[in-house]
Simulated scan of single mutants.
Amino acid sequence: MVLRTVLFLITNLAVVATISLLLWLGVATGWLPPDLPLIPLLIGSFGWGVVGSWISLQVSRQSAIQAMGVQLVDGREGASALWLVETVARLANKAELPMPEVGVYASPEWNAFATGASPEGALVAVSSGILEGMPQAELEAVLAHEMSHVGNGDMVTMALLQGVINAFVMFLARAIALLLPRRSDDQGRQPPPISALIWPLELLLGIAGSLVTAWFSRHREFRADAGAARLTAAGAMVGALQLLGQTQDLLEPRDGTALASFKIAGPPSLLGLFASHPPLEQRIAALQELQSANPSTP
């Protein structure tokens, strides 16, 4: 995670330096007015985006526990909890990852999620519905999917990516508001204040930015599915996704919507470009293709 964070900071500095150079050239060539504080605005926006995403990442595990009502388990709570902890431990050992905290949250939905600022501080949690209702072979594949998210550092990447998007939204909304012509109309009415323009611009730019985060979220689901197939079996992961498809009414978006992109499955969406998860059919097809390309894979 340290290397990923350092690369993220270097990338942000490179982006800020590049945009600053372009802004300086714009002022030098007369394309931009020299009296606007665009470069300080740029630096402040990216600083705020980096700090905000870092804080969000650090509190993600505890926030998830509180938001979802997760109860941490160690195996002494009963047979189901013991199986859950032992299975996660076995998968962590196979993936050469630290043992995460394990939790259960009370909900009839069939779902699971992983979160945390690092593999050493990760949390893997499942709903009571999926723990009680899904067969163990398929549930093990679901847990392997979540462990693959931990191993891939997806929680870190998602948080840092959102920080970059937030920084661009903050900067562009204010830069556009500052650069828009501000003249009185024919009746002498004054234009709206800049602050009144920023919120609509942030809304529009935020919607555009969500397309990027949704695309990455869908991409990482395919990677986590492939990781689950390596840790368990492609057939088990296919079976788990098929069962999730049969229980779409139990994929409740009402609770913990902020954690939707971290769960094994999301609710159906009419707006595919904004969906945090690919359609289950596409994920199943990708796993079957992987299985066909590697006949030795169960």
Rank of each mutant, 00 (worst) to 15 (best):
A17Y: 09
S148E: 02
H149P: 00
V27K: 02
V73C: 03
V50P: 03
A112P: 08
L139F: 05
V104R: 08
W48D: 08
V16F: 07
A95Y: 10
L72Q: 03
A112D: 07
A14C: 06
L82P: 03
L42T: 06
T5G: 04
I39N: 14
G52D: 12
Q66H: 14
S148C: 01
F113D: 10
A79H: 13
V51C: 08
G47P: 05
G133V: 01
L123Q: 07
G30T: 07
F8N: 01
M99F: 14
T18F: 15
V73P: 01
R90S: 14
G121Q: 14
V85R: 06
G129S: 06
V102I: 13
L21T: 09
F46S: 00
I130C: 07
L84Y: 00
E138L: 10
P100A: 00
S60F: 09
W54S: 14
V27L: 01
A114H: 00
A28F: 06
A81P: 05
E138G: 08
Q62P: 11
F8A: 02
L82M: 08
L21H: 12
H145G: 02
L9A: 09
V6G: 01
T29S: 14
A137D: 13
V126C: 05
V70N: 13
W24A: 15
A144N: 06
Q66S: 14
A137V: 10
W48R: 08
A28H: 10
G26I: 09
G133F: 00
S60W: 09
S53E: 14
L13A: 12
T115S: 01
F8I: 01
V85Y: 02
E96L: 15
T18A: 15
V51N: 07
P33D: 12
L38W: 12
N111V: 04
L97A: 10
M99V: 09
W24K: 14
V51M: 09
Q58Y: 13
L123M: 07
E77H: 04
E120H: 15
M134T: 00
A28P: 12
L91V: 03
L22N: 13
N111L: 03
V142S: 07
S45F: 04
S127I: 02
G121H: 15
H149D: 00
I39V: 14
A67K: 07
P135S: 02
S118L: 11
H145L: 01
V73I: 02
G69S: 09
N12Y: 09
V104I: 13
V124C: 04
L139P: 03
T87N: 03
L25D: 05
A17K: 10
P119Y: 10
L82D: 10
